[in-house]
């Protein structure tokens, strides 16, 4: 999987991940691996998923978020979804994600 480092940034102990235009199974493994490597290497506490560029997301996106949540929540970390479009926000809320992550439009 092609690695685009500029999509990942660490600010303080927050890992910011710029999500792609289309979040599906095809790109999920790449995001997962890259994020997990940075969580291990850089002692990240919280994760911010930035959906600014995202126009499409299916249930693979939920898998990515839940997986990262499991990795950091046991150390007291928090997960955020930011810049969510109306549709992405609706998908996240209706699937119950708002109980484990903070969703900001």
């Amino acid at each position: 999987m092609e690695q685009k480092m500029e999509e990942y940034a660490i600010i303080d102990n927050y890992l910011c991940i710029r999500m792609p235009k289309e979040v599906d199974h095809h790109g999920a493994a790449g995001i997962r691996e890259c994020a997990d490597r940075m969580i291990l290497d850089d002692k990240v506490k919280n994760i911010v998923f930035d959906f600014e560029d995202t126009t499409f997301m299916d249930s693979s996106g939920l898998g990515i978020i839940i997986g990262r949540y499991r990795k950091i929540s046991c150390f007291g970390g928090k997960v955020y979804a930011i810049n969510t479009s109306e549709r992405i926000g609706k998908i996240l809320r209706s699937s119950g994600m708002s109980s484990i992550i903070e969703i900001l439009a």
């Binding site: 493994a29 997962r32 249930s59 939920l62 898998g63 990515i64 839940i66 997986g67 209706s94 699937s95």
Partner: peptide
């Protein structure tokens, strides 16, 4: 193990 959310059919239904 591949972090599938188990929501595929639910999404289709929804």
């Amino acid at each position: 193990e591949n972090e599938r959310s188990g929501m595929g059919f639910s999404f289709m239904e929804a």
